[in-house]
Nucleic acid binder design. Structure first.
Lengths: 196, 196, 196, 196
DNA sequence: CATGAATGAGCGTTCATTCAT
DNA sequence: AATGAATGAACGCTCATTCAT
């Protein structure tokens, strides 16, 4: 991902990083409609430089998203490593989801911009998916995680987290929703409870 | 919100309705960046007329959102009525949330447009809030709903529903998340489960 | 060509004309790469107005060209009328070509811009073509015009006139080239002359 | 024009040639608006190198034009040589013009780009002019060429050739126009023919 | 009042040219 | 020298909003 055909010049690498930082920050701050000039100015470069690195706005947003996907993937793999080292699968998954929410909040704007621009943040088929699959398997084996839970479910929950909200709201959301992942939660029957 | 200072002329009322319909439809279909001219054309009026009714785009989106809030409110009050008539509070709340997800999906585009435009869909302080408060109270009294559940929690869940996803995804989300509202869910302790 | 679905507003008609005038003048003066803003400024309107009348630069150049084609067509038909009224076909054709050169010089820049922009100035199939065909026929019948002359030949000569040159140059060109249309010219054999 | 103050380094000469080749090819293929980067890429050098040899685009186009002028000049002098060796002056001039049309067609794009860029392809005062002058003189002396023909006339015809057209069109143009150079053509009086 | 033409700031993008490496 | 990254003015075009008809 960071490997180039020919090694980039040091200043070009620096500029690329500055641009990505600026894009992430400005898109998060002002929404996906920030002008390219604004991003360039924030990065301290001229528009032309921005366009040399990212030929279209879609490419730029895509790159921000790719970084985000990369982070999630890293978190997933780190979580799997911890589980393999003996940590509780459920605990690890919960930690992972907390971390994902934290990371995602920052990228919220980029994520919402993506569809409109045709850029896609596909986690599927990725390393993240296989790490999560193994994590879930371990959790089910340990009797902690509900047996019907899938990687897709995790994605549903992530994509539905209230990322645009303040931290306390996100915490409360996690407190309400995360127990749903457990084997215990699977035993709750809404209809039956409704009769009581 | 729909009350005017002076009674509007019949055709003006009709135009306002046509414009709102067009706005809802076009924003849902094409996203929040549809041009005002497109909305006007769909409504069968000229831009000038559109601007007479809604001085800025923000106002128009705000009105679409207000309609949506109105719908939610109606659903909440209808739900409360059913509960007052003896229906299970939990069942009624679950039905309400399903209905809200259905309605919200349609308005998803408008909702996502709102922040960028400075329009807000505030449910707080509304009739919806008091209806929901009473519903939750009844559910807690019946031992069905977790005791710490608040109206704010309901708003958190609604605002975090995966509205931009296909129906089956929304169903799965509901199946995972709604049990979290129950008193049984409140008894799940993630840390404790993690030790097992 | 100037007929609209609904009658345009008086000021819109005036603006359209001002824009076409400005476009013709600026393209002629500065070449086809004049900015749209420059043309708009010359016309005394804002760019938006220009774009309301001509959605793309291609359309604008196309319209300038269409005017030009219209003028040529009118000249051709006027020439035919004179010939039908008894004027010498050759004389009429020569006058027509002189007039065309005069008109074309003004539109030279637009013509050269056209291909690059994908706009086409097609004279073929037009009223001009049939008028010219009849003119040539009359000239041949009168023994004035070379028997193998076609409408295509006229177009070749027109498209090859040194329009970007000063008036005296264009006059000299006409003096050199126009005799070639005559029956007498057809009798000149370059090879035979070369032997003398 | 190709002479340098100090002898260029061998690779510099090679680069200059590669750049000119690329410029000629790209301008012919894509029109005069090809980017400098494209030309540089085609030449296999970086833009910086291109700019070392040709400080502005105008200079580059001017150089392409100069090459073209050089070719024409060579043709003119070769033609004169043939006439001096006893070939028919008219035949030689006709051949020369055919050759010029062939060469010019290739450089058409460069030529049309020139005015917009302020580069000029001046044939006047050149060796070509004196060669042509002598050729015309010989032709007049032989009674083949019209007595009032000047070098300027040749330039007018060249500059008015339909170079942007397909080969058959150019052939037909030559067939129509070249006889005009003859002494016989000078005897055609349009007015008189018009009376017949 | 409705209409729709006019406005003009702003956008994404390009490209001749400069300059650090 | 050669390289290619950086510059930034300019371009074609859009669209929320205003205003003459």
């Amino acid at each position: 991902m960071t490997i180039q055909q020919r090694p980039m010049r040091a200043d070009a690498i620096r500029n690329r990083a500055k641009i990505l930082d600026a894009a992430r920050a400005e898109i998060a701050a002002q929404g996906p409609d920030v002008g390219m000039e604004v991003i360039a100015a924030t990065a301290g470069v001229a528009v032309g430089t921005l366009y040399r690195h990212f030929p279209t706005k879609t490419d730029l947003v895509g790159a921000v998203l790719a970084e985000y996907v990369e982070q999630i993937t890293n978190e997933a793999e780190a979580a799997l490593d911890r589980a393999r080292s003996g940590a509780s699968p459920l605990g690890v998954i919960v930690e992972f989801l907390h971390e994902v929410i934290r990371i995602s909040a920052i990228n919220e704007a980029a994520k919402s911009a993506a569809p409109a621009l045709g850029a896609a943040a596909d986690l599927d088929e990725s390393r993240a998916a296989s790490a999560l699959a193994e994590l879930i398997e371990k959790g089910i084996a340990a009797g902690q995680i509900r047996q019907d839970l899938t990687v897709a479910d995790i994605y549903i929950l992530i994509s539905a987290a209230p990322l645009d909200q303040e931290e306390p709201v996100r915490e409360r959301w996690a407190a309400l929703v995360l127990p749903c992942l457990t084997a215990d939660a699977a035993r709750i029957d809404l209809d039956e409870v409704g009769q009581r």
